[in-house]
């Protein structure tokens, strides 16, 4: 795999290398300073008690909002749900997507049609996905319970039972985003050189051995990138939660993201909402940096 050192070697040193910096440095500077300014501004706002119902009465309150968050059971539970949802969604989507892409990774009639169909959930807006699933999961008129009833299973209260609701949302998220994993994995499978596999087969390896020792290690980095993208999206998931349950019943689907929204737009407590958002951002960044290091700084055993 050609890495950056190769590129630098190709471009040579000295004048050429300097010239390229003129192209990317301003962009890096711009994005960097925007992020820094915004973060500092948000941090400044979280040190106040801004409420939309009390204009002009905000005062500096130090780290009170952070202390409040630390002892806010509702927020801690919401964070737990964010972690559960993110981990479950990412793991299931990547595993399922990998399985599907291995299954369809061969030439067959209608491959292009399959690929087209795979795109459908991805291009649907989450609001439409949420509404569609809400109708599918309707306890008395929904298709899901109808299908269950044909095999003699009783009605399930998909969105009204606090033990089930989060998993119903998970189901909708998996339906929407597994195809994304399939598409990316299919693309990397197609770009793999076929020679190592064929060589292994000639040497007498069985299909599962080819898959486990050759194909999967070669896909490892691609899968890590896909998992990273899905994890970032899952932490930010909001639309389907808002449409399907709004955090209910009994707070069973309230993620930290949603709690931040409710603090801002139901309680009008802007500073506390920003505190939640900032803490969530920091936690997400730390978690993703760890994952990133795991993916890219680890010994590169998978490289061909």
């Amino acid at each position: 795999m050609p890495g950056s050192p190769g590129m630098a070697g190709l471009a040579g040193s000295g004048a050429m290398k300097d010239a390229t910096t003129y192209f990317y440095r301003p962009i890096v500077l711009l994005f960097g300073s925007v992020s820094v300014i915004l973060t500092v501004y948000v941090l400044w706002l979280t040190l106040h008690n801004i409420s939309l119902l009390r204009p002009g009465q905000e005062s500096f309150i130090g780290f009170d909002n952070y202390v409040r968050l630390l002892f806010d059971g509702r927020a801690i539970n919401a964070l737990g749900r964010t972690v559960l949802f993110t981990v479950a969604a990412t793991v299931i989507e990547v595993a399922l997507g990998l399985a599907i892409s291995l299954l369809v990774d061969r030439e067959f009639l209608g491959k292009r049609i399959v690929r087209g169909i795979l795109l459908v959930p991805i291009v649907m807006t989450p609001v439409v996905v949420g509404l569609t699933w809400r109708f599918l999961l309707d306890p008395s008129n929904g298709m899901m319970n109808y299908l269950l009833s044909t095999i003699g299973l009783g009605p399930v209260d998909w969105l009204g039972n606090p033990n089930v609701a989060l998993f119903s949302l998970l189901m909708a998220d998996i339906w929407q985003w597994t195809p994304f994993v399939v598409l990316l994995t299919m693309a990397s499978l197609e770009s793999l050189p076929g020679d190592p596999q064929n060589a292994a087969r000639v040497d007498g390896a069985r299909e599962w051995q080819v898959l486990w020792f050759i194909t999967l290690p070669a896909l490892k980095r691609a899968l890590m990138v896909v998992a990273l993208i899905r994890a970032i999206d899952a932490v930010k998931a909001f639309d389907i939660f808002y449409i399907m349950t709004r955090g209910g019943p009994a707070l069973s689907t309230e993620t930290l993201n949603l709690y931040g929204y409710i603090s801002a737009f139901t309680n009008f407590d802007i500073s506390y909402s920003l505190t939640i958002a900032l803490v969530l951002t920091i936690l997400t960044n730390v978690a993703l940096l760890l994952l990133y290091n795991l993916a890219f700084k680890a010994p590169k055993q998978g490289e061909t």
């Binding site: 009994a250 707070l251 069973s252 407590d269």
Partner: peptide, 18 residues
């Protein structure tokens, strides 16, 4: 709004049996 929201959580919890 916040008072109503908090009451709504209580109602939802009891209704769900949690």
């Amino acid at each position: 709004n916040e008072v109503i929201n908090n009451a709504g959580i209580a109602v939802s919890k009891v209704l769900a049996g949690t």
